[in-house]
Amino acid sequence: MQLNIKYFGLIAELTTCNEETLEFSEATIADLKEVLVEKYPELKTKDFQIAQNKEIVSSNAIVSGEEIAILPPFSGG
């Protein structure tokens, strides 16, 4: 399945793009994390949450949506 992935904040700096399309054949959000860490090893040390189809989901959720967002926490004020 084709996933459209949006990156936010320092994650977008690390991937050097705000958005990309990725071919994904695994099952869960945890699998997706692994695929992303393989592509961007530095992600391993970063904290982030994943949203699919505009909803924050947990690691055991099944990847069903095409629209994924990778969100790091921001601390600035």
């Binding site: 320092l10 040390t45 970063k46 904290d47 949450q49 924050i56 790091p72 926490p73 921001f74 601390s75 600035g76 004020g77």
Partner: peptide
């Protein structure tokens, strides 16, 4: 509920 685990200290830079 959004970010359950506090990030490691110093892993996110400030302004």
């Amino acid at each position: 509920c959004l970010f359950p685990n506090p990030p490691k200290e110093g892993s996110v830079a400030n302004c």
